[in-house]
Design a protein around this nucleic acid. Structure first.
Lengths: 207, 207, 207, 207
DNA sequence: AATGAATGAGTATTCATTCAT
DNA sequence: GATGAATGAATACTCATTCAT
C-alpha cells in the first residue's frame, strides 16, 4: 500500500468517529439543544477546539451524524431486501434488519423515528424528511411488488400502507422495551402477522 | 386619574389561557428550546413577569400545556367512544376524533405524537409517557372488547396491536399533509380498513 | 410637564450614559478589540446583559459612542465659529474649542484623531471618515472665507491646508502632553501663528 | 524515497522575511487583532508552527515588524538628508522620501503614522513612541539648522513645528489618496510651500 | 528545522428568572 | 395583580500556542 493519505486521513477516522459517537450519545440523552459542545468534547476525550477541526459547527456535526446513520441503515436495508425473493419474505427481512438496527442504535433511532423535527434547524428537518421518504418508498416498493405478485390485496394504497408501517416502528420498539419479558422474536412475528393481514396476505408462518 | 381598579376585567381569568395559547403557538412553531418567554409574553399580550405569576417556570408552563391538551383530547375520545356500541364502530369514532384533533392542533400534536421527546426534561417525558399509556390502553380496551364480541381475531395481542395503531398516527398525519389532493376522509377510511383487516375483521364498509 | 415618556426614557439617560462612559474609558485604554463587554459592564456598574438592552452589539455601542462624541464636538465648533466675524478670529476660536475638547475627551479624541481605522469594522471606518470629512470641510470653509476677505493668500489650496491643520491636531496634543511645563495657551498661540503664517496672514497678535 | 534532505534550500534564510512580509500584508489589511497566525502562515507559505521558530509570539513578530520598517525608513531618511545642503533643500528631500515611503507601504504607514496606537500592547506603544520621537527630532534638527542658517524664523519653537509637520503626514497622505486626480508632486509641492511659509521662509520655488 | 493536529482560555451574545415600582 | 428593566449563568465558537512526529 503506497502513500495515499488525504491530509489527515490516518487520525481522522479515529477522532472524527469518537466525536460522532460522543455526539450521538449526548444528543440522544439530552436532545439537540441541550447537548453542549463541551460535553461532547469531554465524552469524546478531545479538546473543545478539536471538534471544530472536523466539523464546521454544531449543526454540521449533527447533520453529518444523521446522514451517516440513516445512510448506513438504508443501504443495508436495500441490500438485504434485494437478496431475497418474494414480497412477504422481503417484509420479513425488513423487519429483521429493523429490529437489529434498533437494538444497535436505539438512541438515534428514536430521534429519527420520532420525527422530532419541531424546532430543529431547517437543514436538519429537510435531511430527516428526505431519509424518511427514502425509507417509506422502500417499504412501498416492497408492497407494490407484493401486489403485482398477487400476494397483497391490490386495492390497498401502497403509499399509505408504507407510511403506517413506517410510523409504527417507534411504537413497536417502545413496546418491546416495555415488555422485556416477551421474546423480541415473538413480538416481531406478531407485528409481521399484523401487517400481513392488513395487507390482505395469509400470515407468514402459513405461507 | 380616576379609580381604574380593574381595567381589563373582561380578560381576567382568561390571562392564563392567553399565555397557554401563546405558548402553544410559539412552541409549536419553534420547538421547546428555541421558544422564548419574551415571545410568548408578547404573543399573549402580557408582560414577561406576568407569566411567572401563573407558572413557576418555563418547564411548568409547558408541562401544564401538554397536560391540558392531552387531557382534553383523551377525555373527548373516551366520551365519544362510550357513546357508541360495537368495537368496529368505536374504532371508527376514534379515527374520526383523532383526525379532527390533528386538524386543529397539528403542531403540538406532532410533538405529542412523537411519543418520546428525546431531550425533553425528564418531567415532561414522564408526563408524555403517561399520556401515551392512557391512550394506548384506550385503544387496547376497544380491541379487547372487539375480541370478546367476536369481531376481532382473539389470537391477536391487543396491547401490541394498540401500540402499532398508536404509533401510526403521526405517519398518517404526515401522509395526509403531503397528499393534500386526496380527501382526508378517504385516507381515514383506507387506514381504518387497513387496521380492521389487521385485526381480523371484515372491512368497515361491508360490516 | 404631562406624561411624555418614551418607553424607558427615565432610566435610559442614566444607564445608557454610564455604559457609554465606561465603554469610552475601556476602549480608550485598551482599544476596540481588547475591550470586553464584561469589563465595560463592570466599569459601568451594570450587568452584562444590560448593555444589550441599550445596544444591539459591541459594534453598535462603539458606533454610537463615536457618533455621539463627534457630533457634539462638531456642533459646538460650528456654533462657536458662527458667532465671530473674520477668518482669523474664527481660526482662533477653532483652536480654543479644540484645545478644550482635547482636555475633556483626551482618550476618545486620540482614537478619532489618530485615524486608527485599520482593522476596524467597516461601519466604524465609514463613520469616522464621515466625521473627519465634516471636520475638514469646516476648517476649509474658514480658510476660504479668509481668502475671500483677503486675509489669507488666495493661491493656497484650502482643502489641502485644511487637511494639514486637521492632521496636526493629534501631534499638537501629544506635544502639549509631553511639555506639561509649557503653558497650554502658549502652545496654542504658537501653533496658531504657525498656521497663520502658512496661510499667508500676519500673526494673530498683530492683527 | 531517495535522499531529499533540503528540498527547499533556495528559500532557506528567506523564511523569516517571508513571514514578516506576510504579517505586514495581513496586519495592514485587517489590523493587529483580527490578523491570525493561521493566515500569516498560509500567506507566507510556511507551517503555523514555523512562525514560532522565528518569533516568540504574535506580539514579538509585530514588534520586530514595526522595528524593521521604521528603522529602515528612518535610516534612509537620515542618509538622504545628510547628502544635501541647506535646510530648505533638506525639507524638500524629506518630503520626497516620505511620499515614496507612503506609496510603497501605505497600510503599515497608516498604522505607524497614527502615532499613538490606542489599544496596542504597551510594548508596541513604547516602541512606536520611540520611533515617533526619533522622527520628530530629525525634522526638528533640520528646522533648527535652518534657523541657524537664517532661512527660518528664529522665534519659532522648532520642536512644536516638527510635531505639527510630523502629525500632518497621515492627513496629507489621505488627502492625496482622495484626490487621485491631482498630481502627487503638486500636492507635495503645495504642502512644502505651506510649511516653508509657516517657518518664515520664502516658498521653495522662489528660493 | 518544519509541520499542523490538538488544545482550552477567552469572547460576544442569549434568555429564564427576579424584583422594585 | 402587572410590568419590564436588570441580571449573570450558560453556550457556541475562535485562535495563539504547544508538541509529537
Amino acid at each position: 500500500m503506497p502513500e495515499e493519505r488525504s491530509p489527515r486521513a490516518p487520525l481522522e477516522g479515529g477522532k472524527k468517529q469518537a466525536i460522532m459517537n460522543a455526539a450521538l450519545a449526548v444528543i440522544t440523552e439530552k436532545g439537540y439543544h441541550p447537548a453542549t459542545i463541551d460535553e461532547i468534547a469531554e465524552k469524546a476525550g478531545v479538546g473543545k477546539g478539536t471538534i471544530y477541526l472536523y466539523f464546521e459547527s454544531k449543526l454540521a456535526l449533527v447533520s453529518e451524524l444523521i446522514d451517516s446513520v440513516t445512510r448506513a441503515h438504508l443501504n443495508e436495508m436495500e441490500k438485504r431486501i434485494a437478496q431475497v425473493q418474494g414480497a412477504k419474505e422481503k417484509l420479513l427481512v425488513l423487519a429483521g434488519v429493523e429490529f437489529d438496527f434498533w437494538r444497535r442504535h436505539a438512541p438515534l433511532a428514536q430521534i429519527l423515528a420520532s420525527g422530532e423535527m419541531v424546532g430543529m434547524a431547517h437543514e436538519l428537518r429537510d435531511q430527516m424528511r428526505a431519509a424518511r421518504e427514502r425509507y417509506v418508498r422502500l417499504i412501498q416498493s416492497v408492497i407494490e411488488e407484493g401486489q403485482r405478485q398477487g400476494v397483497f390485496a391490490p386495492s390497498i394504497d401502497a403509499a399509505l400502507a408504507a407510511a403506517i408501517i413506517f410510523g409504527a416502528r417507534l411504537s413497536l420498539f417502545q413496546f418491546a422495551a416495555e415488555h422485556r419479558g416477551a421474546q423480541p422474536d415473538a413480538i416481531r412475528g406478531q407485528a409481521l402477522d399484523f401487517f400481513l393481514r392488513a395487507l390482505g396476505a395469509a400470515p407468514a408462518r402459513e405461507a
